[in-house]
Design a protein around this nucleic acid. Structure first.
Length: 198
DNA sequence: GTAAGGATGCGCT
DNA sequence: GCGCATCCTTACG
């Protein structure tokens, strides 16, 4: 079923709104004839040229081109030489912003996810941005691709999450950013969900 | 269960 | 060359 797929217009809105509303939505990956999916339980917003934590604050470079492009595309890059990060581009074209998907709760295809994650099981399968990319076979081939069944990566709508179930806090791993940007409460998660990263 | 440290490659200065 | 929007292994309770 893909008729409840999130439209690309969903992403053409303020990044903080998108980051909050992505919580509870279903991330779907079709790869190797398998359907893998999970509920998004943790996100972070990276917003524009004035956000010193945002890669695009260093300017329009080959690496950050995707964030300057139209919304509803995947921005995937490698960090620490080993781990992929999945971001979804937001806001209008030419305004560089994205939401990092930090954790999901697996729903479908748990066996294939475990196969890609070595012997890891339970919450360790997808409770971190690098982990979920490994479990869902997300790599730089998806960088710049639209979210669509045609690319094998898309989102499906789920019932909205109650605002009281959403928690906010500072973003992770951005010590190089300015104090104000480090203090911004731009990380969101589902309160009490076991799959939220530590 | 927690804590510490090493791994690793790409984009950019 | 340097610095990352991290994770895993190894130790020790």
């Amino acid at each position: 079923m893909t008729n409840n797929r999130l439209s690309l217009d969903f992403f053409a809105r303020p990044t903080l709104t998108v980051a909050r509303e992505l919580l509870g939505q279903r991330l779907v990956r079709q790869v190797d004839g398998q359907r893998l999916s999970g509920v998004i339980v943790e996100t972070e917003a990276y917003i524009g040229p004035d956000d010193s934590a945002c890669h695009a604050s260093k300017g329009h470079t080959p690496r950050t081109t995707v964030m300057f492009g139209p919304p509803g595309r995947a921005y995937v890059y490698l960090i620490y030489g080993m781990y992929h990060m999945l971001n979804l581009v937001t806001e209008a074209e030419d305004f560089p912003a994205a939401v990092l998907i930090r954790a999901i709760e697996p729903l479908e295809g748990i066996e294939p996810m475990q196969a890609r994650r070595g012997r890891q099981r339970g919450i360790h399968l997808t409770n971190g941005p690098g982990k979920l990319c490994a479990a869902l076979a997300i790599n730089r081939q998806l960088n710049g691709q639209s979210l669509s069944p045609a690319t094998g990566l898309w989102l499906e709508a789920a019932p909205p999450v109650a605002p009281a179930d959403i928690a906010a806090g500072p973003r992770i791993g951005i010590d190089y950013a300015t104090p104000a940007d480090r203090a911004a409460l731009w990380r969101f998660w589902l309160r009490g969900n076991r799959f939220v990263s530590k």
